[in-house]
Each structure stands twice: as structure tokens, then as C-alpha cells.
């Protein structure tokens, strides 16, 4: 098993993903906000976002079905897929916070990172702040984990 395959495929899938996002229109924040904006009625509503997600699922769904019969992926020892099915407060609160941020600037993580490559100053500021937010949550999580250990000790 070659690690070159694993690294090369990561780079190429990232590249393809970016092309897909740019082609789909999702790197234009007004198209994202336009999907959620019904204030001007149907005439100015932009359903594009639904077509992007639908297109993505159209490919991913059958491939996922086929993959379930396989024992392992091509470049790794095993599949690493989430298995949790419980709905907890963290999932709800986290998703709500993300939704507010998404609606505020029209950028979710993929289009934001892609737009950084395009030199968008707005995206560069947003991504710097996004990475800070990610880091903050991870620090908080680590802090809670060590506190939990002290209590059980």
C-alpha cells in the first residue's frame, strides 16, 4: 500500500471539490443568501443551492451503497466513517451556531477556503476567523477533558 496514493488522492479530490464549488456558484455568497431569502417572493428566489446538494447526493448515494460491500478503501487499511446515531445538545447548538454564521456572510467552510485561493479579501478574513473559532472549540474541549479527569481522580 502506497502512501503516495493516499496523499495524491487527497490533493486531487480537494482540487476537484474546489472546481465543483466554483462551477456551482457557491463561491458567490449572494447565491447562498439568495437561497434563504424569500423576502422578495419567488421571483428573486435562487434555488441553486438545492441543485448543488442534490447533484452531490446523486453521485454519492449510489457510490456509498456500492462501497458498503467492500472491505477496505484503496489507499487505507479500513474505512473511517461516523457511526453515532444519537442526537445531543452539542449537535443542535453547534449546527445552530454554524447556521447563523453561514447566513450572516454566505460562506460555509468549503467555498470560504476555495475563495481564499481566488484571493478574496473577505474570504481571507473569514477563514482566519473560522480557524480561530475551530481552535477555540478544540481548546475548550481539551480543557473540559482534563478537568473531567481531575474530578474522577
Amino acid at each position: 500500500m502506497s502512501p503516495v496514493g493516499k496523499y495524491l488522492s487527497a490533493l486531487v479530490t480537494g482540487l476537484l471539490f474546489a472546481f465543483g464549488l466554483a462551477l456551482s456558484g457557491m463561491t458567490q455568497p449572494s447565491k447562498v443568501v439568495g437561497f434563504f431569502d424569500f423576502s422578495q417572493g419567488l421571483q428573486s428566489w435562487d434555488p441553486s443551492l438545492a441543485f448543488v446538494m442534490g447533484g452531490g447526493m446523486l453521485v454519492y448515494m449510489p457510490v456509498y451503497r456500492l462501497v458498503q460491500r467492500r472491505k477496505r478503501p484503496l489507499f487505507e487499511e479500513r474505512f473511517r466513517l461516523p457511526s453515532r446515531r444519537d442526537i445531543d445538545a452539542r449537535l443542535l447548538l453547534g449546527s445552530a451556531l454554524f447556521g447563523i454564521g453561514w447566513g450572516l456572510a454566505g460562506f460555509c467552510p468549503g467555498p470560504a477556503l476555495t475563495s481564499v485561493g481566488a484571493g478574496s479579501r473577505e474570504a481571507i478574513v473569514l477563514v482566519a476567523s473560522m480557524l480561530t473559532g475551530m481552535w477555540l472549540f478544540q481548546r475548550l474541549e481539551a480543557l473540559r477533558a482534563t478537568r473531567g479527569k481531575e474530578v474522577t481522580r
Binding site: A10, F51, Y60
Partner: peptide, 22 residues
């Protein structure tokens, strides 16, 4: 364009699954 872009995103995501299992 949005459907085509979506298909491309789906293909990239599917490739990540088949190749790297993620």
C-alpha cells in the same frame, strides 16, 4: 451549472470515500 458543480462535488466526495475511506 449548479447541478453540474454538484455532480463534481459528489464525485470528489465519492473519490475520497473509495480511495481513502473518509
Amino acid at each position: 451549472q449548479s447541478l453540474l458543480g454538484g455532480l463534481l462535488i459528489g464525485a470528489a466526495s465519492a473519490a475520497m470515500l473509495v480511495l481513502n475511506g473518509r
